[in-house]
Amino acid sequence: MTAATAPAGIDSSAVSERVEPRLVGVIALKVLREAVRDRWFWLYCAGFALLAAGITTLALPDTEVVGTGGFGRTAASLVALVQLVVTLMALTLGARSLAGERESGTLRFLLSHPVSRTEVLLGTYLGLGGALLAAVAAGFGVAGLVSSFRSAVVDVGILLKIAGASWLMALVMLGIGMLVSVVVRRTGAAMGAALLIWLGLVFLGDLGIMGTVAATNLPAETLFAVAVANPIEAFRLTAIVSLEGSLDALGPAGTYAVDSFGNSIGWLTLGVLFAWAVAPMVLAWLLFRRKKDL
Protein backbone atom coordinates (compact mmCIF):
# COMPACT_ATOMS: atom_id res chain seq x y z
CA MET A 1 0.00 0.00 0.00
CA THR A 2 1.37 3.35 -0.99
CA ALA A 3 1.77 5.94 1.67
CA ALA A 4 -0.99 8.50 1.59
CA THR A 5 -0.32 12.17 1.40
CA ALA A 6 -0.78 13.45 4.88
CA PRO A 7 -2.03 17.03 4.90
CA ALA A 8 0.02 18.12 7.89
CA GLY A 9 3.04 16.24 6.69
CA ILE A 10 2.81 13.80 9.57
CA ASP A 11 5.35 11.12 8.98
CA SER A 12 4.11 8.05 10.73
CA SER A 13 7.31 6.18 10.11
CA ALA A 14 9.04 8.63 12.44
CA VAL A 15 6.83 7.55 15.31
CA SER A 16 8.61 5.09 17.51
CA GLU A 17 6.66 2.35 19.17
CA ARG A 18 9.37 2.33 21.81
CA VAL A 19 9.10 4.16 25.09
CA GLU A 20 9.86 7.83 24.56
CA PRO A 21 11.12 9.55 27.71
CA ARG A 22 9.62 12.84 26.60
CA LEU A 23 6.12 11.40 26.52
CA VAL A 24 6.62 9.58 29.82
CA GLY A 25 7.65 12.93 31.26
CA VAL A 26 4.58 14.74 29.91
CA ILE A 27 2.30 12.10 31.42
CA ALA A 28 4.25 12.02 34.70
CA LEU A 29 3.92 15.80 35.04
CA LYS A 30 0.22 15.62 34.33
CA VAL A 31 -0.26 12.84 36.90
CA LEU A 32 1.89 14.64 39.44
CA ARG A 33 -0.04 17.86 39.01
CA GLU A 34 -3.30 16.02 39.39
CA ALA A 35 -2.04 14.20 42.49
CA VAL A 36 -0.85 17.28 44.34
CA ARG A 37 -4.13 19.04 43.61
CA ASP A 38 -6.10 16.20 45.10
CA ARG A 39 -7.58 16.73 48.55
CA TRP A 40 -6.76 13.15 49.56
CA PHE A 41 -3.12 13.91 48.95
CA TRP A 42 -3.33 16.87 51.30
CA LEU A 43 -5.26 14.91 53.90
CA TYR A 44 -2.65 12.17 53.89
CA CYS A 45 0.22 14.68 53.96
CA ALA A 46 -1.33 16.67 56.78
CA GLY A 47 -2.14 13.51 58.72
CA PHE A 48 1.34 12.11 58.29
CA ALA A 49 3.08 15.38 59.16
CA LEU A 50 0.87 16.05 62.18
CA LEU A 51 1.26 12.56 63.56
CA ALA A 52 5.01 12.68 62.94
CA ALA A 53 5.20 16.01 64.77
CA GLY A 54 3.05 14.61 67.58
CA ILE A 55 5.20 11.52 67.99
CA THR A 56 8.35 13.58 68.02
CA THR A 57 6.95 16.02 70.56
CA LEU A 58 5.54 13.42 72.89
CA ALA A 59 8.48 11.09 72.73
CA LEU A 60 11.00 13.73 73.77
CA PRO A 61 9.52 15.24 76.89
CA ASP A 62 12.27 16.95 78.84
CA THR A 63 15.85 17.13 77.72
CA GLU A 64 16.84 18.67 81.04
CA VAL A 65 16.03 15.47 82.83
CA VAL A 66 16.57 12.76 80.30
CA GLY A 67 19.43 14.31 78.44
CA THR A 68 19.54 14.00 74.74
CA GLY A 69 18.53 10.42 74.29
CA GLY A 70 15.41 9.00 72.89
CA PHE A 71 15.72 9.43 69.17
CA GLY A 72 15.76 5.67 68.82
CA ARG A 73 12.31 5.35 70.31
CA THR A 74 11.08 8.33 68.30
CA ALA A 75 12.45 6.80 65.16
CA ALA A 76 10.79 3.48 66.01
CA SER A 77 7.46 5.26 66.38
CA LEU A 78 8.05 7.14 63.14
CA VAL A 79 8.77 3.85 61.41
CA ALA A 80 5.50 2.41 62.71
CA LEU A 81 3.71 5.54 61.51
CA VAL A 82 5.21 5.16 58.05
CA GLN A 83 4.19 1.51 58.07
CA LEU A 84 0.61 2.58 58.73
CA VAL A 85 0.08 5.84 56.88
CA VAL A 86 2.52 6.03 54.00
CA THR A 87 1.70 2.49 52.92
CA LEU A 88 -2.00 3.24 52.87
CA MET A 89 -1.44 6.48 51.01
CA ALA A 90 0.73 4.83 48.36
CA LEU A 91 -1.52 1.79 47.95
CA THR A 92 -4.66 3.85 47.48
CA LEU A 93 -2.94 6.33 45.17
CA GLY A 94 -1.81 3.44 43.01
CA ALA A 95 -5.12 1.60 43.15
CA ARG A 96 -7.09 4.67 42.11
CA SER A 97 -4.75 5.71 39.35
CA LEU A 98 -5.52 3.67 36.25
CA ALA A 99 -8.82 2.30 37.48
CA GLY A 100 -9.99 5.86 38.06
CA GLU A 101 -8.85 7.01 34.64
CA ARG A 102 -10.48 4.01 33.06
CA GLU A 103 -13.72 4.63 34.87
CA SER A 104 -13.84 8.33 34.08
CA GLY A 105 -12.93 7.67 30.43
CA THR A 106 -9.82 9.86 30.55
CA LEU A 107 -7.62 6.83 29.93
CA ARG A 108 -9.15 6.68 26.45
CA PHE A 109 -8.51 10.37 26.02
CA LEU A 110 -4.87 9.86 26.94
CA LEU A 111 -4.50 6.80 24.74
CA SER A 112 -6.09 8.46 21.72
CA HIS A 113 -2.77 10.29 21.50
CA PRO A 114 0.35 8.74 20.02
CA VAL A 115 1.44 7.33 23.36
CA SER A 116 1.77 3.69 24.29
CA ARG A 117 0.25 1.96 27.27
CA THR A 118 3.74 1.41 28.60
CA GLU A 119 4.33 5.15 28.54
CA VAL A 120 1.07 5.80 30.34
CA LEU A 121 1.91 3.21 33.00
CA LEU A 122 5.44 4.50 33.50
CA GLY A 123 4.37 8.13 33.51
CA THR A 124 1.69 7.44 36.07
CA TYR A 125 4.17 5.55 38.26
CA LEU A 126 6.74 8.32 38.07
CA GLY A 127 4.19 11.07 38.67
CA LEU A 128 2.70 9.41 41.70
CA GLY A 129 6.16 8.42 42.90
CA GLY A 130 7.07 12.09 42.78
CA ALA A 131 4.00 13.04 44.77
CA LEU A 132 4.92 10.42 47.37
CA LEU A 133 8.47 11.75 47.51
CA ALA A 134 7.09 15.17 48.37
CA ALA A 135 4.78 13.69 51.01
CA VAL A 136 7.57 11.70 52.64
CA ALA A 137 9.93 14.68 52.56
CA ALA A 138 7.28 16.89 54.14
CA GLY A 139 6.54 14.38 56.91
CA PHE A 140 10.15 13.77 57.79
CA GLY A 141 10.89 17.47 57.46
CA VAL A 142 8.28 18.25 60.07
CA ALA A 143 9.42 15.43 62.35
CA GLY A 144 13.04 16.46 61.98
CA LEU A 145 12.29 20.11 62.61
CA VAL A 146 10.35 19.36 65.78
CA SER A 147 13.02 17.00 67.05
CA SER A 148 15.80 19.45 66.24
CA PHE A 149 14.40 21.79 68.87
CA ARG A 150 14.25 19.05 71.42
CA SER A 151 17.16 16.76 70.97
CA ALA A 152 20.72 16.96 69.80
CA VAL A 153 21.24 13.30 69.12
CA VAL A 154 19.05 13.06 66.05
CA ASP A 155 21.49 11.98 63.42
CA VAL A 156 20.96 13.72 60.10
CA GLY A 157 22.23 10.72 58.18
CA ILE A 158 19.85 8.35 59.93
CA LEU A 159 16.93 10.71 59.41
CA LEU A 160 17.65 10.84 55.69
CA LYS A 161 18.24 7.10 55.48
CA ILE A 162 14.90 6.31 57.09
CA ALA A 163 13.17 8.90 54.93
CA GLY A 164 14.74 7.31 51.87
CA ALA A 165 13.70 3.83 52.94
CA SER A 166 10.20 5.17 53.55
CA TRP A 167 10.04 6.50 50.02
CA LEU A 168 11.29 3.22 48.64
CA MET A 169 8.58 1.42 50.56
CA ALA A 170 6.04 3.93 49.29
CA LEU A 171 7.16 3.05 45.75
CA VAL A 172 6.69 -0.63 46.57
CA MET A 173 3.14 0.03 47.73
CA LEU A 174 2.51 2.28 44.74
CA GLY A 175 3.55 -0.55 42.42
CA ILE A 176 1.27 -3.01 44.18
CA GLY A 177 -1.54 -0.47 44.05
CA MET A 178 -1.02 0.06 40.32
CA LEU A 179 -1.05 -3.67 39.75
CA VAL A 180 -4.43 -3.74 41.47
CA SER A 181 -5.47 -0.82 39.30
CA VAL A 182 -4.59 -2.72 36.15
CA VAL A 183 -6.34 -5.91 37.24
CA VAL A 184 -9.45 -4.50 38.89
CA ARG A 185 -11.52 -2.34 36.58
CA ARG A 186 -13.71 -0.38 38.97
CA THR A 187 -12.21 2.28 41.22
CA GLY A 188 -14.29 1.23 44.20
CA ALA A 189 -13.29 -2.39 43.89
CA ALA A 190 -9.65 -1.41 43.39
CA MET A 191 -9.73 0.70 46.54
CA GLY A 192 -11.30 -2.17 48.44
CA ALA A 193 -8.62 -4.55 47.22
CA ALA A 194 -5.92 -2.04 48.18
CA LEU A 195 -7.38 -1.77 51.67
CA LEU A 196 -7.41 -5.55 52.04
CA ILE A 197 -3.79 -5.75 50.89
CA TRP A 198 -2.89 -3.04 53.38
CA LEU A 199 -4.58 -4.92 56.21
CA GLY A 200 -2.87 -8.10 55.12
CA LEU A 201 0.63 -6.65 54.86
CA VAL A 202 0.49 -4.39 57.92
CA PHE A 203 -1.46 -6.54 60.34
CA LEU A 204 -2.60 -9.96 59.22
CA GLY A 205 0.78 -11.17 57.98
CA ASP A 206 2.54 -10.41 61.25
CA LEU A 207 -0.37 -11.61 63.33
CA GLY A 208 -0.42 -14.85 61.38
CA ILE A 209 3.27 -15.41 62.04
CA MET A 210 2.75 -14.61 65.72
CA GLY A 211 -0.03 -17.13 65.95
CA THR A 212 2.06 -19.74 64.17
CA VAL A 213 4.97 -19.10 66.52
CA ALA A 214 2.72 -19.53 69.54
CA ALA A 215 1.07 -22.64 68.15
CA THR A 216 3.94 -24.51 66.52
CA ASN A 217 7.22 -23.20 67.86
CA LEU A 218 8.23 -21.98 64.42
CA PRO A 219 12.03 -21.96 64.11
CA ALA A 220 13.63 -18.53 64.19
CA GLU A 221 15.01 -18.85 60.67
CA THR A 222 11.58 -19.66 59.25
CA LEU A 223 10.08 -16.79 61.17
CA PHE A 224 12.70 -14.43 59.79
CA ALA A 225 12.35 -15.71 56.23
CA VAL A 226 8.58 -15.41 56.23
CA ALA A 227 8.59 -12.03 57.92
CA VAL A 228 11.26 -10.44 55.74
CA ALA A 229 9.36 -11.44 52.61
CA ASN A 230 6.75 -8.88 53.64
CA PRO A 231 7.88 -5.55 52.16
CA ILE A 232 6.57 -3.61 55.13
CA GLU A 233 8.68 -5.76 57.45
CA ALA A 234 11.64 -5.44 55.09
CA PHE A 235 11.25 -1.67 55.38
CA ARG A 236 11.11 -1.82 59.17
CA LEU A 237 14.20 -4.02 59.30
CA THR A 238 16.01 -1.68 56.90
CA ALA A 239 15.16 1.23 59.16
CA ILE A 240 16.25 -0.63 62.28
CA VAL A 241 19.53 -1.61 60.65
CA SER A 242 20.26 1.98 59.67
CA LEU A 243 19.32 3.09 63.17
CA GLU A 244 21.14 0.42 65.14
CA GLY A 245 23.50 -1.23 62.73
CA SER A 246 22.04 -4.63 63.55
CA LEU A 247 18.90 -6.55 64.43
CA ASP A 248 20.06 -7.77 67.83
CA ALA A 249 17.16 -6.08 69.54
CA LEU A 250 14.66 -8.33 67.85
CA GLY A 251 15.16 -11.41 69.97
CA PRO A 252 16.18 -14.84 68.71
CA ALA A 253 14.98 -14.26 65.15
CA GLY A 254 16.97 -11.04 64.98
CA THR A 255 20.03 -12.78 66.38
CA TYR A 256 19.59 -15.51 63.81
CA ALA A 257 19.49 -12.90 61.07
CA VAL A 258 22.63 -11.20 62.35
CA ASP A 259 24.45 -14.51 62.72
CA SER A 260 23.46 -15.64 59.24
CA PHE A 261 23.84 -12.44 57.28
CA GLY A 262 26.13 -10.33 59.42
CA ASN A 263 26.77 -6.90 58.01
CA SER A 264 24.95 -7.64 54.79
CA ILE A 265 21.62 -7.81 56.59
CA GLY A 266 20.82 -4.23 55.56
CA TRP A 267 21.54 -5.09 51.94
CA LEU A 268 19.31 -8.13 52.23
CA THR A 269 16.33 -6.14 53.48
CA LEU A 270 17.02 -3.38 50.98
CA GLY A 271 17.19 -6.02 48.26
CA VAL A 272 13.79 -7.36 49.31
CA LEU A 273 12.41 -3.83 49.07
CA PHE A 274 13.90 -3.32 45.62
CA ALA A 275 12.54 -6.64 44.44
CA TRP A 276 9.12 -5.63 45.67
CA ALA A 277 9.46 -2.26 44.00
CA VAL A 278 10.16 -3.89 40.65
CA ALA A 279 8.12 -7.12 40.55
CA PRO A 280 4.54 -5.80 40.85
CA MET A 281 5.29 -3.06 38.32
CA VAL A 282 6.67 -5.57 35.83
CA LEU A 283 3.59 -7.70 36.30
CA ALA A 284 1.34 -4.65 35.96
CA TRP A 285 3.19 -3.71 32.78
CA LEU A 286 2.82 -7.17 31.25
CA LEU A 287 -0.88 -7.25 32.08
CA PHE A 288 -1.62 -3.70 31.00
CA ARG A 289 0.24 -4.14 27.74
CA ARG A 290 -1.28 -7.52 26.92
CA LYS A 291 -4.75 -6.71 28.06
CA LYS A 292 -6.23 -5.52 24.81
CA ASP A 293 -9.47 -3.93 25.94
CA LEU A 294 -9.40 -0.76 27.98
Partner: peptide, 17 residues
Protein backbone atom coordinates in the same frame (compact mmCIF):
# COMPACT_ATOMS: atom_id res chain seq x y z
CA UNK B 1 1.30 4.74 18.33
CA UNK B 2 2.02 5.44 14.69
CA UNK B 3 -1.64 5.03 13.85
CA UNK B 4 -2.73 7.35 16.63
CA UNK B 5 -0.17 9.87 15.43
CA UNK B 6 -2.14 10.06 12.16
CA UNK B 7 -5.59 10.05 13.70
CA UNK B 8 -7.65 12.85 15.16
CA UNK B 9 -10.51 11.58 17.25
CA UNK B 10 -13.69 13.19 18.50
CA UNK B 11 -14.98 10.71 21.07
CA UNK B 12 -18.62 10.00 21.65
CA UNK B 13 -18.20 10.26 25.41
CA UNK B 14 -16.52 13.60 25.91
CA UNK B 15 -14.40 12.46 28.85
CA UNK B 16 -11.62 14.94 29.43
CA UNK B 17 -9.88 15.82 32.69
Amino acid sequence: KAVRQMVGHVPQELDFY
